[in-house]
Write a protein that binds this DNA or RNA. Structure first.
Length: 161
DNA sequence: GCCAACGTTGGC
DNA sequence: GCCAACGTTGGC
């Protein structure tokens, strides 16, 4: 099956593209997702090699900060099974997990964050989920043309700075 | 800090 | 199964 494209949101004060970059070639487990639609994307569709737009939310500015890649198959989110973890979910069981995670790996940090405002202004990105008013989903599917367009805009931004 | 747009919970 | 109340997300 062909590679898929995603957008993952993170608040940079919690975990930023720099934090991911610091991890270098090491993988980072992307867990703690507690929304069923996002869970379904992770559990049912994500696969190793998929590419990810790493999005900073609640940031100044909010926008796409870089690129990551999925580096594992989906697996049970251990934070849901650990009673000491803030993301613990007593309804999730090891033999039938409710929540899933994947490993991700740093690929690229943009020279500066590509702001949401810039994405909104681009006609080719019309219909992209992250641009929808009230879009709160932390794991979003991105079309290949939209993914490639975002990379293009990031390059243009780098050239201009 | 405000508030719109959600998703979830629980009474009925 | 409906829906009001509530909690959360996230842009601004």
């Amino acid at each position: 099956m062909a590679r898929a494209y995603w957008l993952l949101k993170s608040e940079p004060e919690t975990f930023s593209i720099r934090d991911l970059e610091t991890a270098g070639n090491q993988t980072t487990d992307w867990g703690g997702v507690r929304n069923y639609q996002a869970r379904n994307y992770i559990r049912d569709q994500m696969k190793s090699g998929d590419l990810v737009l790493f999005y900073h939310s609640n940031a100044e500015p909010s926008g796409v900060a870089g690129v990551a890649k999925v580096s594992s198959a989906p697996y049970a989110d251990s934070t849901a099974l650990d009673a000491q973890d803030p993301y613990f979910d007593p309804k999730s069981r090891a033999e039938n997990p409710t929540w899933y995670a994947v490993d991700i790996q740093w690929v690229q940090t943009f020279s500066s964050v590509l702001p949401l405002e810039r994405l909104k202004a681009d006609a080719e990105l019309a219909g992209m989920e992250v641009l929808r008013k009230g879009s709160r989903l932390s794991v979003q599917s991105v079309s290949k043309p939209h993914f490639e367009r975002v990379l293009k805009l990031a390059k243009v931004l780098a050239r201009g700075s």
